[in-house]
Design a protein around this nucleic acid. Sequence first.
DNA 1: CGAATACCTGAACGACTGTTCAGGCGACAA
DNA 2: TTGTCGCCTGAACAGTCGTTCAGGTATTCG
Lengths: 131, 131
Amino acid sequence: MADITPDLSLAPPPGAPDSDCACDRLDFPFDRVLSLEKAQRMAEFFGVLGDPNRWRILSALALQSMRVRDLAAAVGMSESAVSHQLRILRTMRLVGYIKNGRNVIYSLKDQHIFNLYREASEHLDEPDDRR
Amino acid sequence: MADITPDLSLAPPPGAPDSDCACDRLDFPFDRVLSLEKAQRMAEFFGVLGDPNRWRILSALALQSMRVRDLAAAVGMSESAVSHQLRILRTMRLVGYIKNGRNVIYSLKDQHIFNLYREASEHLDEPDDRR
DNA sequence: CGAATACCTGAACGACTGTTCAGGCGACAA
DNA sequence: TTGTCGCCTGAACAGTCGTTCAGGTATTCG
């Protein structure tokens, strides 16, 4: 796999009028690229946030902690579907729960989800400036 | 802008002997749950970040702007695969590009990706505290 | 005890995703 | 002009994802 030799001299600065070089002598710190393991972990986490119904579940839980049954009603899904999704959100530690008799009350687990939401919103609402 | 505001005012208190009700009278602000459209947009955006190879491409571009060919070498993928992924990253405005002769030099488009990365890292590296 | 409730889980099916393969287009050099 | 290079794109296939359906476990009540 990626055992490309990181020798070679210097890289053209971005935007510099450079490209006469043959450029098979790319000076690039290959070892500083995100490792496959770390990239995998990142992708798994963000992949969990890549489903609209999971966002609706999270937003409902942001309003108030709830039983599964009420959560299903709040987002308009079947209890089974919600339960499946909650398991996924649980494994990513995005939600927590407490048991109460035969009820299970879910809640958001920390603040990171709010920051992620805000950051993404800002990006999506950004004007379409070319760069 | 749209917000997920934590408001835990009127959740059924744990242990309330309520469940005789048919529970179609759940007191819950359904209209404040993330709309399907907004949830869809969120999911699309985060879904793009749900692939390890795209993260490696982004991390490589974070180190320096590059031609497609060099990018492919940097992350160990075929040029075709990289090109396909760049198109996806382009549509989400995560990367930009400038043409230079027959080369196309890609670069990161804004800072949001760094914040998202940091936020996710913090979450993933968090100790497994129960709550 | 048995029935009902709340929730969880495995299997299966349709839909989506990301890669490879083949070929296309435009820019540059001879 | 022809040939090569860098990049893009459509089709197709394997793999993954999220839902539904059916059934299971645990708790509560009569």
